[in-house]
Design a protein around this nucleic acid. Structure first.
Lengths: 204, 204
DNA sequence: TCTTTTTTGTGGTAAATTTTACAAAGAATA
DNA sequence: TATTCTTTGTAAAATTTACCACAAAAAAGA
């Protein structure tokens, strides 16, 4: 199969989320038209995106939602459950550790870390905060490949480097800083200020 | 001035964040090369992006960081402070209400809302939780144009509609759902699961 | 059964975006 | 001072991405 452009991959999770929403509402089938309106993408774009991976629709009918959901889950490699570590138990890390929205989307938090002696050993939700000092060893041993980085910006690069050493391949970075990472490690950034600034440009 | 592509606008806040980081480290000047390495964008791309708005650099020397920061703040309309309302005081809304990272990036949370009678009146950080029933009136009266939506997915669309009625022009949406909004309202979505799924595609 | 309607997948085209390459300007060096 | 080095801004080329339009297939309706 040929290389799929990143921009297409980035849209697939959005399609999937909308499709599962339709399923939850009891819908059986949909069209590229309907899905497109839902996610603000042109129908042609959706058809072209999906056609990169196979022929999932039927002319005259559209797409069977359950079937397409399964296919997208396969494509995105979330037809399994990925263990995730959360590093940094400030307000954000805390909220994430208690968030129950990952479960049915392919992820499960299994370890949480902080370097504050006052927090180590404390219980958050169903987890006990572990010492960041044991991060590398624990994560490598558990075979965890995904981490959410919720430490202060000042520590983010150092902790990210540790994560890479531990074998982590994907980092969801909540620290408001650009991480320098090897090509082999994927990073997605979540910075609310940047989201806001992308909008104020258009405002008076 | 001609229309600036959205994709360029979306990179500016990232440049700004990196430049302020350099400033904080005492640096005076930088080059498109150096900034590019910092944010993983080609030097030519950065020069081209900035050239849309003026000639901010000097040949042989590069860019004066303080000057460029000021220019970017003007361009992004954050050479002022925007009042922001947070709706929904679950774990995420709670974390945001207590977050102190917006202050120097152009934003200030001034109102927080929830519809849970047990929460209304409660103090979070420096704010008192207001009843969502008063949302429209309060936001319109205060002239708030930006909201962060942190309510459960089931309520997100209804609350977003209320926000639009209240005159809100930009929504940072934490609910894991695609909002249907008029053209005139900007939306930026923050959904950690989508961030993670964009990475698992590339993983075994 | 025949006609009309719906909808997909895709080839071709248009538009948008990125990269290349270089003249020009300024700084650094000899 | 003259030469070399650095770096910008941008025109042109290359690449990527999005859109259009339609044949073909299936369903719905007459």
């Amino acid at each position: 199969m040929k290389e799929i452009p990143d921009i297409i991959v980035s849209r697939l999770p959005v399609y999937l989320r909308a499709l599962r929403h339709m399923l939850a509402q009891g819908k059986q089938t949909t069209s590229s038209q309907e899905l497109g309106e839902q996610v603000s993408v042109s129908a042609a774009q959706i058809r072209k995106d999906l056609s990169q991976f196979g022929e999932f629709g039927k002319q005259g009918t559209g797409y069977n939602i359950g079937f397409l959901v399964d296919k997208l889950r396969e494509i995105l490699h979330i037809d399994r459950v990925w263990d995730v570590a959360v590093i940094g138990m400030g307000d954000i890390g805390h909220a994430i550790a208690r968030y129950h929205g990952f479960a049915d989307r392919g992820f499960r938090v299994t370890r949480i870390f902080d370097n504050d002696p006052a927090k180590i050993g404390q219980q958050i939700g169903e987890f006990v905060i572990q010492d960041t000092a044991q991060l590398t060893e624990t994560i490598r041993q558990a075979g965890i490949k995904i981490a959410m980085l919720c430490v202060p910006a000042t520590q983010a690069q150092a902790v990210a480097d540790q994560l890479v050493k531990a074998g982590v391949q994907a980092i969801l970075n909540y620290a408001p800083i650009s991480l320098g990472m090897p090509e082999s490690v994927r990073v997605q950034n979540i910075d609310p200020s940047i989201g806001l600034q992308r909008m104020t440009y258009y405002m008076e």
